[in-house]
Nucleic acid binder design. Structure first.
Lengths: 141, 141
DNA sequence: TCAAGTATTTAGATTATATCTAATATGACA
DNA sequence: TGTCATATTAGATATAATCTAAATACTTGA
């Protein structure tokens, strides 16, 4: 599909467009479910070329570092991965652990504890960055 | 300190107030850092009575199920645990993985990508509950 | 084209995190 | 006290992720 676009975005981030890395990226874009590393590893190995588990993890780490992919931690389950496209929120199912995207503009109008057919138990803002201990000091210190 | 309060809240949730379970709860309340299961295991074992790793995990699971404690998943690191007191948000440090509480009323006024001395890289709303597949169908089905 | 350097991949070992098992202990209460 | 459900335990096991060191594949410069 947008093979060239994938190549562009990889190389634009200083990553070679290797077959294995391309396969990870393509799989994530094609299925915008939120697969685990293990699912991605399996999927890319159903097609050629084969990729080892280490490579799958390496590539996911590289893609996350490059800002092309987001890792979503889920309690008690394997992390899930998500191409970073439009800004969006996440919905995580208590029972199956599935992670769903929720459009940014859909979020402000939740009605009575539900969003569509979902049942929302809790909702939490998570900030990520550097804590006061880790943030670089200003020149005054 | 509020030994009686801890006992009350455990028993109010149908959990026996065993020494091991009490120790987990007391540790979480005393240090409102957000320790990992391993840290809690170590800490409660520095004091008597000794508790096994399985018990620590069992108790944490029970406390989470009872709604007394919250589990916070962190990418690439062990989960962290938090007594559920006042409603609050979380800040997760990219570098050290530390989880900090952020008062509910402090959040609406972030200034220029920072909250206090923290450096905020991203912020995301996470909804948890049952997805459309897992939510029970209405009687019409 | 080749040589040399860098990035990437690989299988399998290893680590880290969490859960399971089955035996034992504890507490509630009839 | 006896009985039964709940809780604890050590150690084995499962699961998730990373590391290692060697091989391979690119890239660059001549």
């Amino acid at each position: 599909m947008d093979a060239e676009a994938i190549k562009q975005s990889l190389e634009g981030s200083g990553l070679r467009c290797t077959p294995q890395r391309y396969a990870v990226m393509a799989f994530l874009m094609e299925h915008n479910r939120h697969p685990t590393a293990a699912e991605i590893f399996e999927a890319v190995n159903r097609a050629d070329p084969r990729s080892s588990r280490a490579t799958t993890y390496n590539n996911l780490r590289d893609l996350v570092q490059a800002g092309l992919v987001r890792e979503v931690a889920v309690e008690g389950r394997a992390a899930r991965f998500d191409v970073k496209g439009m800004r969006h929120h996440h919905f995580i199912c208590d029972r199956c652990g599935e992670v769903e995207d929720m459009a940014w503009y859909d979020v402000p109008k939740p009605a009575k504890g539900s969003l569509g057919k979902r049942i929302v138990r809790e909702c939490e803002l998570i900030f990520r960055g550097l804590c006061t201990k880790c943030a670089p000091r200003r020149a005054s210190g």
